[in-house]
């Protein structure tokens, strides 16, 4: 499968409060917001915990492991690609792409974090079968 270019909309300055997150992406590290008040992680990152509304949030580096919750392969994409929801080891489920061979993918499969370059933004997190 040829590589699809990820297109980053806007800039890393479009939304204040995310500079730490995007800077980590530049280093190919995925940060997940954790709430000090309720102890839960969430996704996508927000300035307010969606579980308990606390502002007491920390960025923690993800282990980089996940499980495919659902996916859809787009065989006529140019080039073909796979969109997926991956449930992180930290708890939340994130929208992402699966790179690699689409033919053998299945829901429940363990996948591993990777970063791919984007157009207009930092490298972005995707996942690949282990």
């Amino acid at each position: 499968m040829s590589k699809r270019r990820l297109v980053f909309p806007g800039s890393t300055g479009s939304n204040p409060g995310l500079s730490t997150f995007w800077a980590a992406c530049e280093e190919r590290r995925l940060l997940v917001p954790h709430c000090r008040a309720c102890g839960r992680a969430h996704w996508y990152p927000r300035a307010v915990c969606p579980h308990c509304a606390s502002h007491e949030l920390d960025w923690r580096e993800a282990k980089g492991e996940g499980v495919i919750y659902s996916f859809s392969a787009v065989p006529r994409g140019e080039p073909p690609y796979v969109i997926a929801y991956v449930t992180l080891a930290e708890g939340p489920t994130m929208l992402t792409n699966i790179v690699g061979d689409a033919a053998t993918l299945r829901i429940g499969q363990t996948v591993r974090l990777r970063f791919v370059d984007s157009d207009g933004g930092p490298p972005l997190p995707v996942f690949a079968p282990r």
């Binding site: 996704w43 994409g77 929801y85 984007s118 995707v126």
Partner: peptide
């Protein structure tokens, strides 16, 4: 948007993920 658009969600593939699950 910045956490989703780069992965090319479309009307069809997003509904398709509901079907797959």
């Amino acid at each position: 948007l910045q956490f989703e658009f780069p992965y090319a969600p479309t009307t069809v593939n997003m509904y398709a993920m509901c079907a797959a699950r």
